[in-house]
Simulated assay, not measured.
Amino acid sequence: MPKPTYALRYTAKNPAERIFPHSESSSGVVLPGTGLLQVMVWNIFKQQRTDWLNVLNNHALDSQLVLLQEAQTTPELINFATDNYLAADQVPAIIMPQSAYGVMTLASANPVYCCPLREREPLLRLSKSALITVYPLDDGRQLMVVNIHAVNFSFGVDIYQQQLKPIGEQILQHRGPVILAGDFNTWSRQRLYSLYRFSTLTGLQEVRFPNDRRKKVFGRPLDFVFYRGLQVADALVLETLASDHNPLIVKFHANP
């Protein structure tokens, strides 16, 4: 019997709430549709290294969206999320006795739509997660945000493409702007080609980093930000020893 896929939503002074696929809700707070929209993307390595909280305190607080991969639900991370953001949605990829870890999206607005996704690693039999959330913008549009940690250990790219397929279907159905970001584990030529083909089919553009210090394996970057219906104002990579990945920060003009 497969385990149900759900997200856990953390909000200030409330118990964690289970959110199941394709959940919709109302939101009284919106993200900026004019001016700058800042997004931070970071594989936080389960907070196993010191100084991860300082990185968030020093660099995440100016971001309206923070997309974390390998986020472990420790009290320190939950406190940071609920103290500084309206909502933090996490898809538990792996559940431990005291915590869970998977992708987590922190936002300064409540999502109006939430769809958690999981895909099992074919070799290790552990899961990787993805999360699709939609937020209202102050110009009346809706922004779709996809936070993904792609499957890592697999022969060929069948499972890799299988994980991307439902995401692509929802991106194609969405009429507003889109941000797709995370750790794509693109360590092979086949995986990188599959990702670029996916971005082309879904009409997404890749954010380019002038001073590119992204984590690489076999000479290929693992972390990406793709977008549609927005304009890039600035993009940078922060160098840190607080994780085995470097955070990405992208500033968008929300108006196309």
Rank of each mutant, 00 (worst) to 15 (best):
R213C: 02
Y193N: 10
F218G: 00
L68H: 02
W42K: 09
I19H: 02
S25L: 07
C115T: 12
G33Y: 13
D89G: 01
A100K: 08
G168E: 11
L68T: 01
N43E: 07
G102S: 02
L53H: 07
A81P: 14
L238C: 04
F80D: 05
P15W: 08
I167V: 15
V134N: 04
Q72L: 06
L192D: 04
P32S: 14
N57I: 01
N147T: 07
A87R: 02
P111I: 12
L106T: 11
A87T: 14
A100D: 03
M40G: 11
Q64P: 02
L192R: 02
A87S: 15
Y6E: 05
Y135W: 11
N43M: 07
N147R: 00
W187T: 08
Y135A: 03
L137M: 13
A87E: 14
L37I: 14
H22I: 01
T73A: 13
D51N: 15
F184R: 00
F209V: 07
V29G: 02
V178F: 07
M96C: 04
E17D: 05
F153Q: 05
P92K: 10
W187L: 06
G35M: 13
Y135G: 08
V217D: 01
R49E: 03
S23N: 13
D62Y: 00
K3T: 08
G229I: 11
V55N: 06
T34L: 12
M1R: 05
S129N: 04
